[in-house]
């Protein structure tokens, strides 16, 4: 849409109007209120101009790197591979997760209950109790790193520090109408282990959804053509700059979850960024001006 002819013409028309309005205003007698006018109108003109030129000249690529590898090729949105004037080595990649959560699901559909407003409980410690969709739950054990061994009749959940270990919570569940509480392990599994559900009765089970991601970060070493190397940490919301390029934490191998050894970066180069920022900061100042000065009093 933003590359269509009508859109480009509309942008051009807007810029022309803005430019002419600014020129016309500058020929008349100036007052202090004109400061606000120029900040807002010239700021918008500059930001729009930089944005339009930037959208034509900007380069955006993604780069997928495995732990220990060095990469200098990025792929464009079109899938085309491009060599870059810089290389990135992925030293380590880390994911932190939030505490596990428990939900009650309907056995037949797998949907979370109550259907109208699903409830969930975030783990706060062994011995805690909670009410979820009419089920009373007590957490009796917690294994942050667990291995699951099972065959058709037997299942064993044991603590194990290993790649691919999963999170497991042992819970006791009771609800009105149930002869006696059921107790057992619940886990959300990993790429190695399938998840475990604790069946309460014919209709419902306790389940653990995938843990939400708290933070993911890549420790990298960057190399440039003129021989400069730099070690840095890249996180979401904390990109780094290497020469003209901004490097962003973009994604990871989500099939392996927290055991991902692959990090995906986005590299962006926008030669017009400074122009756009100039416009943005003028507009910010213009907005403050509007807020403080308010509308012009009409002579009544």
């Amino acid at each position: 849409m933003t590359t269509s002819w009508p859109f480009v013409l509309l942008c051009f028309y807007n810029l022309t109007i803005l430019g002419l309005t600014i020129l016309k205003r500058s020929t008349r007698k100036q007052t202090w209120r004109d400061i606000g006018f120029y900040l807002n109108h010239l700021g918008l003109f500059i930001a729009l101009l930089g944005g339009i030129l930037g959208s034509a000249d900007m380069e955006r690529l993604t780069m997928t790197i495995q732990k220990g590898q060095v990469e200098w090729r990025g792929s464009l949105q079109t899938g085309e591979i491009k060599e870059l004037p810089l290389a990135i080595q992925l030293d380590t990649f880390m994911i932190e997760e939030y505490e596990p959560k428990l939900v009650i699901i309907e056995n037949e559909t797998g949907k979370m209950l109550p259907a109208s407003r699903p409830e969930s409980y975030m783990f706060e410690g062994v011995g805690k109790t909670t009410q979820l969709a009419g089920v009373a739950l007590t957490i009796t054990d917690y294994l942050p790193h667990a291995a699951i061994f099972r065959d058709s009749t037997f299942m064993n959940v044991v603590p194990m520090m290993m790649e691919g270990a999963t999170t497991a919570l042992k819970v006791k569940a009771s609800k009105p109408g149930l002869a006696q509480p059921v107790e057992g392990w619940v886990s959300n599994g990993s790429y190695l282990f399938p998840p475990i559900f604790l069946q309460i009765d014919d209709e419902t089970s306790v389940a653990m959804p995938m843990q939400e991601i708290k933070k993911y970060s890549s420790h990298v070493t960057t190399f440039t053509e003129n021989g400069k190397t730099k070690e840095a940490v890249i996180e979401v919301n904390k990109p780094i700059q290497v020469e003209d390029w901004m490097i962003y934490q973009y994604s990871y191998d989500d099939t392996k979850g927290k055991y991902s050894d692959t990090s995906v970066f986005e590299l962006v180069r926008d030669p017009w960024l400074k122009v756009v920022y100039t416009g943005i900061f003028m507009l910010l100042a213009g907005a403050l001006f509007l807020f403080i000065a308010g509308p012009k009093k009409k002579a009544s």
Partner: peptide, 27 residues
Amino acid sequence: VYAGIACITLGMLMGAIWAKVAWGHYW
């Protein structure tokens, strides 16, 4: 309206600056 649009503008531009940091582009 002047006070309101001043704040809308501030919110939008802060969003643009943040978006550049978080998503790689301001718009």
